[in-house]
Write a protein that binds this DNA or RNA. Structure first.
Length: 575
RNA sequence: GCGCUUGUAGCUCAAUUGGAUAGAGCGCCUGACUUCGGAUCAGGAGGUUCUGGGUUCAACUCCUAGCAGGCGCACCA
C-alpha cells in the first residue's frame, strides 16, 4: 500500500471529472504532478502541486484553481481537511482511518510492504566485480561488489528477475604475466631460484601459496620449460585465484550466478562472429587513429587497424579492435561478451564499473546500441573510489610493496555488516571516506549499530513479555487511536515504498541505509518519551501490551528488517 | 588539450529527481539513568548550496560560461 500513489491516482481521477464538466482544462499529460510529504513545519499529511501545474493552461491563479479542486477532493471520505497555501500547494490532512489501514496492510503482508506492484517486471543481467583473476580482491573492489549485490537485491525485492554475472578476464598479457609469476614461484620452491624483481610480475605472497597448491596437485608436470606448460599452468593459476576471489566474495555475503570466461569466448570464435555482425551493419572499417592533440605522445605509432564506429553513438573517437600483433584488444572481446549477453535475451543489462573505468562507458554502450538497435539497453553505474583512513591518516595501498588491504583483512577487522552498511551509505558516484576506527566503533557514531539497536530494542519488548517478535498477530478490527507522536513514525513508514521506488528506478541503494537511520532515529526518540510519559511505554503496569502498540512496533521492525535484508545486513534480536 | 565526475554548516554527507523556512551525524555548549536495553534521548549555536548569466509560478537540482578537486585519454585489462 502506497498512500502517495493512491492519492496521485485519486487526484488524477478528480481533475479528469472536473475537466469533463468543463470546469478545468487538462494538459496532454500530468507527468509533473507530484504527491508527497510536505515539509516538517506544515501539519498536513500529504501535499500536491496539482493547481500550480494546471495554472498556465487554465489561465487562472493556482489559488483560484485550488478552490475548485479542493471542493472536488473533499468528497473523498478519508480526507478531513484541505488547505490551500501560497504559491498554490494543496495540503491535505487525512483521517486517522488511513493509518489504521496502513498498519493493517503491513501486518497482514509484512514482506510485501514496499514492493512496487505497478512496475513492469523485467529480466536483468547485472555484471559486477569482474576483477582480474590475478589475485584476491582488495578494498577497491569491495564497494562495487556490494553496490552490485544490493542493486540486485532491490530489483529482486521488486519482483524482477536478476542474473548476477562475473566476467573473468582470463585472456591477455596480464594473465601471461601472472602465469609467469606462478611459474617462477614454482621454480623458486623446486630449484631454489630467486624470484626476480620485474615490475610486470606479481610479487604477492598469495602467489607462493598458489604455486604450492599447484605443485601439490600436479607433481608430474615438467616445470623446466615455460612455453611447454604455459597453457596448462595458466588455467590452473586462474582457477586458484578465482577460488580466492570466490572466498572473498563469500565473506562479503555475495554470490554470483555465473563466472563467464573471456578465453572461452575467444576460443569459440565469438569475437570474429561479432565483428562480422557489426561489419554487416557497417560499423567496422579499416582506418587510423590520430594521436590526441596537445599531448606529448612521442611513442605514438599511427597505423591502419580495424576500428569500431563508436563516434556514431557519441564517443570521442572510434575504437581499436586489433592490436599491432593482430590479436584482439580487450574492447573487442568485451564487445563479443556483450553480444553474448544480448543473445541470452535479457530486457536490461547493468554494469557496475570502478571509477577508473568511467571513460570506458561510452564505447561499450555504443557497441550495445549498435548490436541491439536499442538505446539504453545497457546501464552503467560507476562506483567511486574508497579513501581508506587508518589512525586518522589516509592509507595508500601499494601493490609493489605488497602493502594493500584485502577484503579478508577488511572483513576480519570490521565485519561484513559494518563494511556493507558504510559502503552503501553514500551515493556511489561520490568518493567515500572509510575510517577503520569509526566503522569499528560500537556507538551512535556508527549508523549500523544505531539501526540494529532499534531492532534489538523492539525485540527486547517482546522478550520481556515472553512473546516472539516473529509471531503472527491476529486483529479483527483495526480502529486504533494513535497519538500524534506515533502517527509521526507511521508517516515515516508510509514513505518506505517511495524509497524503494526511487532506489529501484535510479539504481541508488544509498537511500535505504539513510532512510533506515532516520526511521531508527524517530523510534529512539519515541522510546525515550516513555521515561516521562507512561502512556508512551509499550509495556504497561500490568506487564501487558495493547494490540495497537504491538502493531505499531511490528510495523517498524518489519520495515527495518526488510531494509536490512536488502542491504544484506543482519538484524540481531539482542546485541 | 579533450572527455567524464564532484563542489551544500568547521568536518563527513542528505535533500522525495524542479517544490514551501535546505536537513542529519561528528565536533562545540547545556541537560536526562529509582528505565520496556544509555550502543539512547532533549535543547542550543552553526548557511550568499563554488562564481556569473539564463530558463519559470518555483532552481542545490535544468541550460550556459567560468573557477577548483578527482578519474580517464590508442597499440594494457
Amino acid at each position: 500500500m502506497n498512500i502517495f500513489e493512491n492519492y496521485l491516482n485519486k487526484i488524477k481521477v478528480a481533475v479528469d471529472q472536473l475537466s469533463k464538466k468543463n470546469l478545468i482544462i487538462l494538459p496532454d499529460n500530468l507527468s509533473s504532478l507530484s504527491v508527497d510529504t510536505p515539509p516538517q513545519n506544515i501539519k498536513a499529511d500529504i501535499s500536491t502541486n496539482i493547481s500550480m501545474i494546471l495554472s498556465k493552461i487554465n489561465k487562472k491563479s493556482p489559488m483560484a484553481l485550488g478552490e475548485i479542486i479542493k471542493k472536488k477532493l473533499l468528497e473523498d471520505v478519508n480526507i478531513s481537511a484541505i488547505e490551500i497555501v501560497k504559491p498554490g500547494f494543496l495540503n491535505i490532512t487525512l483521517k486517522s482511518t488511513i493509518w489504521n489501514e496502513l498498519i493493517k496492510n503491513i501486518n497482514e503482508n509484512p514482506y510485501q510492504y514496499g514492493v512496487n506492484i505497478n512496475s513492469r517486471k523485467k529480466n536483468y543481467l547485472i555484471e559486477f566485480v569482474s576483477a582480474n583473476p590475478t589475485g584476491p580482491l582488495h578494498v577497491g573492489h569491495c564497494r562495487g561488489a556490494i553496490l552490485g549485490d544490493v542493486i540486485s537485491n532491490i530489483l529482486i525485492f521488486n519482483k524482477h528477475k536478476v542474473f548476477k554475472e562475473y566476467y573473468v578476464n582470463d585472456y591477455g598479457n596480464q594473465i601471461i604475466n601472472f602465469t609467469k609469476s606462478v611459474y617462477l614461484r614454482c621454480r623458486e620452491l623446486l630449484f631454489k631460484e630467486k624470484f626476480p624483481t620485474d615490475p610486470d610480475l606479481y610479487p604477492g605472497d598469495y602467489v607462493i601459496q598458489i604455486a604450492k597448491n599447484i605443485l601439490k596437485d600436479n607433481p608430474k608436470i615438467n616445470y623446466k620449460n615455460f612455453d611447454e606448460i604455459s597453457n596448462l599452468l595458466s588455467s590452473l593459476a586462474v582457477k586458484e585465484s578465482l577460488q580466492l576471489i570466490k572466498e572473498n566474495l563469500n565473506k562479503l555475503g555475495i554470490k554470483h550466478d555465473n563466472f563467464q570466461s573471456e578465453t572461452e569466448l575467444v576460443e569459440k570464435n565469438e569475437v570474429h562472429n561479432v565483428i562480422n555482425k557489426l561489419s554487416k551493419k557497417n560499423f567496422i572499417y579499416k582506418g587510423r587513429i590520430k594521436a590526441p592533440k596537445n599531448q606529448n605522445k612521442t611513442d605514438w605509432i599511427e597505423r591502419e587497424q580495424l576500428l569500431f564506429r563508436s563516434t556514431d553513438f557519441g564517443d570521442d573517437k572510434d575504437r581499436a579492435l586489433q592490436k599491432g600483433d593482430n590479436s584482439w584488444t580487450y574492447f573487442a572481446s568485451d564487445v563479443a561478451y556483450h553480444n553474448f549477453k544480448l543473445e541470452r535475451k535479457f530486457d536490461k543489462l547493468i554494469n557496475i564499473l570502478g571509477a577508473d573505468h568511467a571513460g570506458y562507458i561510452k564505447r561499450i554502450t555504443s557497441s550495445v546500441d549498435a548490436l541491439s538497435g536499442e538505446k539504453n539497453k545497457l546501464i552503467c553505474k560507476v562506483s567511486q573510489l574508497v579513501k581508506l583512513i587508518k589512525d586518522g591518516k589516509p592509507f595508500k595501498m601499494s601493490k609493489r610493496k605488497g602493502d594493500y588491504i584485502t577484503v579478508e583483512d577488511l572483513v576480519g577487522e570490521v565485519g561484513k555488516d559494518a563494511t556493507r552498511f558504510i559502503m552503501l551509505s553514500r551515493t556511489s558516484d561520490v568518493e567515500l571516506d572509510f575510517d577503520f576506527a569509526k566503522v569499528k566503533e560500537k556507538s551512535k557514531d556508527n549508523p549500523l549499530y544505531y539501526v540494529q539497536y532499534c531492532y534489538a530494542r523492539i525485540s527486547s519488548v517482546f522478550r520481556n513479555l515472553n512473546k516472539n517478535i516473529n509471531d503472527e498477530v491476529n486483529i479483527k478490527n483495526y480502529d486504533f487511536n494513535y497519538s500524534a507522536d506515533e502517527i509521526k513514525i507511521i508517516k515515516k513508514i508510509s514513505q518506505w515504498p517511495l524509497i524503494i521506488e526511487i532506489s529501484s528506478n535510479k539504481l541508488e541503494p544509498h537511500r535505504i541505509p539513510i532512510y533506515l537511520y532516520e526511521l531508527a532515529s524517530e523510534f529512539h526518540s519515541y522510546w525515550n518519551m516513555g521515561k516521562d510519559d507512561e502512556n508512551k511505554r509499550f509495556i504497561n503496569n500490568e506487564k501487558k501490551i495493547s494490540d495497537e502498540k504491538i502493531l505499531f512496533l511490528k510495523s517498524i521492525s518489519n520495515v527495518i528488517k526488510s531494509g536490512m535484508n536488502i542491504i544484506g545486513v543482519d538484524t540481531p534480536e539482542s546485541m
